[in-house]
Amino acid sequence: MTEVILSGRGVTKSFRGLTAIENVDFEIPAGAIFGLIGPNGAGKSTLFNLITGYYPLTGGEIRFKGEDTSGLPTYRRNQAGIARAFQISKPFPALTVRENVRVGAMFGRPGGSQPKNVVNEALAIAGLEELADRTAEGLTVGSLRKLEIARAYATRPSLLLADEPCAGLNPIETEEMVNCLRKVRERGTTVWLVEHDMKAVTSVCDRILVIDAGQKIAEGTPQEIVADPKVISAYLGEPLEEQAS
């Protein structure tokens, strides 16, 4: 059994009685690229918000490297090694690409190599060197997504939560993003990936967790997941004959 970097037990979140995440368990092995999929509104982003501490838990516990994370503010969790790239890109628009990444490198997890080297490495991984001195304001969607990854990577995380980094990208950009995530993993960072693009998910992930309506419905290798009837019905709905009966 490999080391577990992040684990959740009975993770639950409700917003004024509306349960968004219900009793979800998970164990993310260190060094993996782990997938998280589920239909729109299943609670994927909410789960990430719980892990980063943006929302407090209603119930259950989340352990990072064996330590309970409850009570740690967001910035402390980042300093401990949890980074997140947003689904809707949230660049610092008036700063240059390099400055955006530098913020991650200056703060983030203490120790490691010089911020300057980290910045250069992050820019290289994401393929953003040529755009480094441009303000983030005018970037295309594809470059903004890369910037999200580069900036999160610059905080030297041991776990990167990537929230739909391929959404809205064309096939070439998706390919680049997948390669970029592979490079992040090669450098020792565990990746937990939310993605709708099934081709991307199945090609890059070692294991996948599926949630629907806030509950865990399946977990397994990509092959197991695509063959799982519960997953198919969650994504495609019940076959017509069964619905009629």
Binding site: T52, Y54, P73, T74, Y75, N78, Q79, A83, R84, F86, K90, P91, F92, P93, A94, L95, E99, R102, V103, G104, M106, F107, G108, R109, R151, A152, T155
Partner: peptide, 24 residues
């Protein structure tokens, strides 16, 4: 300084700054 970058990141997007380890 580091302090200055923290302030700029807060101005640009305070939630993201927190996510990047800035003690806002």
């Amino acid at each position: 300084s580091r302090f200055g970058y923290a302030l700029l990141s807060i101005r640009e997007d305070e939630d993201t700054a927190m996510m990047l380890g800035v003690a806002t």
